[in-house]
Structures are given as C-alpha cells and as structure tokens.
Design a protein around this nucleic acid. Structure first.
Lengths: 193, 193
DNA sequence: GTCTATACCTTGATAGAC
DNA sequence: GTCTATCAAGGTATAGAC
C-alpha cells in the first residue's frame, strides 16, 4: 500500500541517483536534487535529514538493482561462461553512459574513497558483483582462485571504462570487451579440465 | 632569477596539487588551498583569476613531472622490458597513496570527465604515459599493436588501483602487479621472435 | 504531509588600502 | 605585490504556517 510519501521518497532517490552519476556526489547539491525532482527543498528534510542519508539510500537502491539484475541472469543463462560473458556485455550495452560519465559504481567509489569522514561503504556495490562472479568461476571448477579471477575481471573492466571515459573512446571499450570474452573462453576451457 | 611572486605561485600550485589528490577537485575550495598554503585568499587572484586556472596549472605541473620521470627511466633502464616493469613498479611504490586516495591521474580524470563545462583536458596526463609505453612496445618489435598494448597496460593498472582503493587492499595491488610483470615477460618473449 | 520562508555558513570572486 | 574587508550566490539545514 503506497502512500504519497513513499512515492515522493522514491522520486527523490531516483533523481539523486541520476545526478550523482551525471555530476558526481560533491558536485550535486541538495537544492539541485530538489529542483530536478520538483520537490520543494524544505520538504526534503522530512525524508532525509542529511545529504549523506540520500547517498546511503542511493547506494542501497543500486545494490538492490544490481542484485536483481544478477539474479535474472542466473536464471536466464544456463552456463557459467554465458553468464560471465553477459557480465562483460554490460560494457558494450552501457557504452553511452560509460563513455560520457564513466562507470556508475566505479566513479562513485573512487570519489567517496577520498573522504575519510562519512560512514557509507560504497564498496558494497562491488561486493555484489564480485560474489556473483566468484560463484560463476567456482561453477567452472576453480577453487580458491575463483575470487581472484572475479576481482581481476572486475578490475580490468573498471580500468577499461576509466580509459574509455577519459578519451570518450567507444572503440577501445568494444575492443577490450572482445579481449575479455576471449580470456573467459580460455579460462573456462582450462578450468573444466 | 626567481622573485617572491614565482615562489608564491609555485607554493599555491604545490598545495593545490596535493589537495586535489587528497580531497578531489570539487571538494577542494579556494580558501582551503589558501589556508593550507598560508597565502591570504585575496592575494590568490593576483596569480589565478579562476579556480579552473589553478586546475590547469596543476595538470601542466603533473604532465611535466610525469614526463621528467619517464625520461629518467629511459636513461636509467637499458631495455624496453625493464622500463615497462619499472612502470608497473609505480603501483607497488605508491601503495600508501594509491590505497588511500587512488591514482592521482585516474581519479582526477574520472571526476573531471563528468563535467562538460570546463575547458581543461585531463587526458593529456594519460597521453604522456601511453606515448612512452607505446615506444617501449615498438622497441620490443611490435608494430601497430604497440599502442593497443600501451593502452591495455595502463587500463589494467587503473582498474587494479580502483579496486585496491575501494577495499584499501594492498595485497591485491601487489598480486596484480606480479601478474602484470609476468604478462610483460611473455609479451616481450613473443615480440622478439 | 506539504510547502514557504529563512537562518547561517562557505563558496568563488572583487575592490581598494597599504 | 600583499593583504583586509566584503560581495553576491549558493550550500546545508530548520522553524513553523497551512
């Protein structure tokens, strides 16, 4: 049963999520979110008493969406290799966003990592990916190396997006996604034996 | 012949460089730089008429320092392979900074890449690295693939630093530096034949 | 729950005395 | 060249009428 209040709250988190991605956290103001969402800034503090609370809500929202996406892929793709390839496919699909704004998770994590004062843990977004990737490598037959493979795959993709974003270079993004696909196929072949 | 003014200007750029790294560009204020440098904020505008001018000065300074470093390595290490390995060594040496604040070049590039209004090009810092790395791969016998190898090496290292920074994990940084060293040795062996 | 008005602070930037 | 005083704008945050 949704009241008006819940809808307003969701609208605020939606808008904040988008603006944090497009402008960065520091560069996004309370008033900016309020303006963009069409919510009077005074009304804001009924839902979030500090800017950091919105940040936490945005991170929670992203974690949920990522987990939902990964669960869907788990059901949709039959083998670990096809699932891992679907993960790499993220880069190709989100090319517009990645080229223009970088990775939503990576850029926010990098930005917040500089601050020592706040209490949020942006790395939980990475955790969801790494845990899921680890499961795929375990299913491929890897043991204690699975987590390393998972982190390496995530790290490589992060680096590729950082460089592609810096140069606004779609071609490099696609090219390296192909390289990753090849690497996964070789790894899958060696892991099964 | 250095006047007092030149020294003050250098002090400002030094301080801004450090604070942009430790806090990020948006999170660093004019007054913050002035306070930290011990220069009255009013005096500031004698040297830089806008915040973006300091940013440009900091980027120029970093490009010069990177180029000087790479020139030194070019003279100090006799073979392309040892030079490439020295590049990877950056990650191991700068572990404290990389773990705490991320890569000075990567984080600034990611942050500024979101903004569409300013006129600075942070990717020039990447250019210096990529051009130098490309020369090393060319010297190893690679042809048109050299630039790709250079970008891939840089991208991988960027990604590793992003993940290490997110988790404050020195171990992953060292481990992946070892992996990169191995990759370089294999590549060098295949390139010479 | 909603919205206006506003308090209080810091920001980037300037004018002008020394 | 140096420094104080100050500006307008925008930041986070709050009080209180509806």
């Amino acid at each position: 049963m949704y009241r008006k209040g819940e809808e307003t709250r969701e609208l605020i988190v939606d808008t904040a999520d988008r603006l944090f991605y497009e402008r960065g956290y520091e560069h996004t103001s309370f008033r900016g979110i309020a303006r963009e969402a069409g919510v009077p800034s005074g009304n804001f503090y009924h839902y979030f008493k500090a800017k950091e609370d919105i940040l936490q809500a945005v991170i929670n929202r992203r974690v949920e969406m990522i987990q939902r996406q990964l669960d869907d892929w788990q059901a949709e793709f039959p083998t670990p290799l096809t699932r891992l390839k679907r993960f790499v496919q993220i880069a190709r699909n989100s090319q517009q966003g990645a080229i223009q704004y970088g990775c939503p998770v990576g850029t926010l994590t990098s930005e917040l990592g500089k601050e020592r004062t706040h209490n949020v843990q942006p790395s939980v977004m990475f955790d969801v990916f790494i845990n899921w990737l680890e499961q795929q490598f375990l299913a491929l037959g890897f043991k204690e190396q699975s987590r390393n493979h998972a982190r390496r795959l995530l790290a490589y993709l992060q680096g590729v997006i950082v460089v592609s974003h810096a140069y606004h270079d779609e071609e490099f993004l696609h090219q390296e996604a192909d390289v990753l696909d090849e690497w996964l196929e070789q790894l899958a072949a060696s892991g099964n034996t």
